[in-house]
Amino acid sequence: MEKINDIEKKLKPKAVYHASPKVKERVMAEMAKIAAPIGGNTHRWWQWAGFAASLLIIAGIGWMLLNKNTKVLEDREKMAENGSQMLTDSLSIHPASFPSMEDTKPDASLTAQVTESPKPQKRIRQQTVSHKTAVEASPVIEEELLEREEERAAPVDVQDGGELEAMLNGMQQPQSTMSEEEEYMHMNIKVFTANIRIRNKQEQKN
């Protein structure tokens, strides 16, 4: 046991082991370098500058896109205004003479006839039920047809927007010298008046 202790004593270091102070200095310097990006460098000025620059770029792109869209819309509006002006000039119609909503209302006599006349389904049923009743109703239809032909044959009043109506009825064709824009506006007006008519009829039915 004593011998073991002797050997242990021999193996135990007696010298003083001192690491040079450079070790600590180097380790501390390296640690400072490593620790700096963990918290200190997150608020560097160039990071904020980069962030602001990217925000500005995004805002600029957004503004350009928005401006482009508004310009396109403005151009379209201008084209539409020019087109309508050209159309009115070509037709020599003053804007004040355009038909108002009251003028476009259908004739009261016609509406009365429409309301008085039996519904088509009923009429068909009557025809199928008895031949005699159908024969009796025929003079009324003939009168209606005659009235319509007279209306068509009557001279067109330009001030009441009759020309447009005549155009719709195929009585007067648009001039062949019209440009594409003018033709386009003509078509728009046709659709406009047709829509008004349809709306009026729907209102009357209601």
């Binding site: 082991y17 690491a19 070790v23 380790v27 501390m28 620790a35």
Partner: peptide, 22 residues
């Protein structure tokens, strides 16, 4: 946190440096 870790490391270096060197 980084500063605390550096401080803790300094303590460890002061305590253990020579022993680790040996």
């Amino acid at each position: 946190q980084a500063e605390d870790r550096v401080r803790e490391m300094e303590e460890i270096i002061n305590l253990k440096q020579d022993w680790l060197f040996r």
